[in-house]
């Protein structure tokens, strides 16, 4: 089976040092130029198989959204390649990218910010169809939009209403409809349920899973709700400070987490009717992606840290179970 999307050794850094004058700094009587770089994504290698749901979990600020946006071509990676069904797409200009835009779509987190408040639902949904299929007639476009609206559970009667007239869950349905309306194969969903109510989350998740079944979609699913991730994913990648520390099938990861960070993360999930206090306590603070540790990104908080972890960045190690872990401790058999 060949991957639908291959991400190879991708780095994404943001230069936040501002204009030239802001970068100049006076130190020890000398003026030097200093740059501040946020290393949001570092050396990420991933492949996404057709029809699967690959989830990315990790703490806030670990680079999940940045990775998804880089995959979608919203950011250009600083290093590495991204290929869609074998074709490199990371360096394409916006015109060459167009054919891939109908194949890859994205659903965003904030249902309030992701719909243009000045456009009504019909305009929002018709725009992508018309843009990618200029020769469709009005009625064909309309039919296509109505069909997708029905599929996501928004009555086409509401097409002339504006986003602010809908609830958060309905807006998220419209967002999903906008992604589906160009008939994509791959959807990156960046925390699509994080802003929704508990009783609505299940509706949206069901909608996403139904759409996957009907259209054979592949998902890159980002969430920090681990129980949701466990339920809907085929495979899960755990990110920490821009690096992938563990990648395994959902079953394997949740039943047998290898990486110390994964273990800490899983132990912290609140369990219905459980008792608090059993979680792995991490010492230290989350470092910022501006000053990355020189060795393993997790070395500052890891309970199993040794000298080597502080010096050397761990390589991705493929285990027998098929999962991939980046940890010196596991490589050396210490953990």
């Amino acid at each position: 089976m060949s991957a639908i999307l291959e991400i190879h050794d991708v780095d994404k850094h943001f230069d936040i040092s501002g204009s030239f004058l802001d970068q100049l700094q006076l130190s020890k009587g000398k003026i030097t130029r200093k740059r501040t770089v946020v290393k949001a994504v570092n050396n990420v290698t991933l492949d996404i198989q057709p029809g699967e749901t690959l989830s990315i979990v990790g703490e806030s600020g670990c680079g999940k959204s940045t990775l998804a946006r880089t995959v979608m071509g919203l950011y250009k990676p600083n290093k590495g390649t991204i290929s869609y069904r074998g074709d490199r797409i990371d360096h394409l200009n916006s015109v060459k990218m167009l054919p891939y835009r109908t194949k890859m779509q994205m659903v965003f987190q904030d249902p309030y910010a992701s719909l243009n408040p000045r456009m009504n639902v019909r305009q929002i949904l018709e725009e992508p169809v018309r843009f990618h299929n200029p020769d469709l007639s009005r009625s064909e476009i309309k039919a296509r939009v109505s069909e997708v609206m029905l599929q996501v559970g928004v009555d086409p009667v509401w097409a002339s209403n504006y986003p602010h007239e809908f609830s958060g869950g309905q807006r998220q349905r419209i967002s999903i409809a906008r992604a589906l309306v160009v008939d994509p194969e791959f959807i990156a969903a960046d925390e699509p349920i994080a802003a929704l109510d508990v009783s609505i989350q299940a509706q949206i998740l069901n909608l996403l899973m139904d759409a996957q079944e009907q259209r054979g979609l592949t998902y890159l699913f980002i969430s920090h709700d681990l129980s949701v991730v466990e339920h809907i994913s085929t495979r899960v990648a755990v990110m920490y400070l821009g690096c992938i520390c563990e990648l395994a099938t959902a079953k394997e990861l949740f039943s047998n987490p290898k990486h110390p960070y994964t273990q800490a993360l899983l132990s912290a999930i609140p369990r219905l009717g459980g008792k608090i206090g059993g979680h792995v306590r991490l010492s230290g603070d989350v470092p910022t992606p501006i000053n990355l540790p020189s060795g393993c990104a997790f070395s500052g908080r890891c309970p199993h840290v040794n000298e080597r972890c502080m010096q050397e960045i761990p390589a991705q190690l493929k285990l027998e179970s098929g999962s991939v872990v980046a940890c010196h401790g596991i490589e050396e058999g210490r953990i």
Partner: peptide
């Protein structure tokens, strides 16, 4: 409502893929 909330949790789906959703909204 409480039953619905608890049943809607992914761990309550009981092996099924689809979650038990509460229809409609408040």
């Amino acid at each position: 409502y409480t039953q619905g909330l608890i049943q809607a949790l992914p761990q309550m789906a009981g092996g099924k893929k689809r979650l038990n959703q509460i229809p409609g909204m408040m």
